[in-house]
Amino acid sequence: MTDAAEIVLEAKHFSLARGGKEILRDVSFQIRRGEYVTIVGPNGAGKTTLLKCFDRLLAGGEGELLIRGVPAERYSQRELARLIAYVPQADGRLIPFTVEQFLLMCRYPYLSPFASVSKEDRRIVREAMERTDTARFAERILTTLSGGERQKVYIAAALAQGASIWLLDEPTTFLDYGRQAEILALMAAANRQFEVTIVSVTHDLNHAVLETDRVVALAEGRVAFNGPPAEIMQPDILRQIYGTPLLLVDHPQAHIPMIVPRVNGGAR
């Protein structure tokens, strides 16, 4: 992305404490329109919290969070929903709505009270289902979907919501390799074809390095790294972030360092 693109998300010295514990400390970074950014970091580093703050699922905090240059708290929740779609971590609790009913509910920010969904809403939902290859289970009940199917429906939901900024919380966790690739392909397609700005929390640094524009690493609530993906793949930087030595080898095609598991007790 060129530097000329508008800054759509920005944290300025943002700190947040919950229950006496500081979760985010003096976090500052910018994300421009059309960027594909991954947020990484160890468990409990504040990644999910940061996403939730941008979508105002969590309130409060010191410093500023700006969305398209305007402080987040100045938006109504409905205005925010037209700009930002939040895709939560896979949640066990689901309601027996059908996929189509569920997706139509995501048109809420455009709906007035007492109104029913319009033809236009239905068309948009249809289109979102076709793009994500979910149209074939439109009538299925959410609770009966597999993890991979469900995650695809969540991507369709973000499309249906018509927001140009997506915040995704571990979208590929719990998925097998094939399903992971499908979800990542959908995200990449949205990013390229519709200029959707994507901020994705993940534990999969390898993917981040291969596919995304930039990596922001959080450690203990602070920004520990913010830059091009290839630059984070250095043993000392990774050790600083994760507190454990990681083994790197060159990717045979891309020739970028990748993390591979260490063999305990030496090679057999």
Binding site: Q77, A81, R82, Y86, I95, F97, F102, P109, L111
Partner: peptide, 18 residues
């Protein structure tokens, strides 16, 4: 509409604009 969204969970409802 809000009741339907709340049924899916508070985070879900809020992120959809409730």
């Amino acid at each position: 509409h809000e009741l339907n969204l709340m049924l899916m969970g508070e985070d879900f409802a809020v992120s959809r604009g409730v």
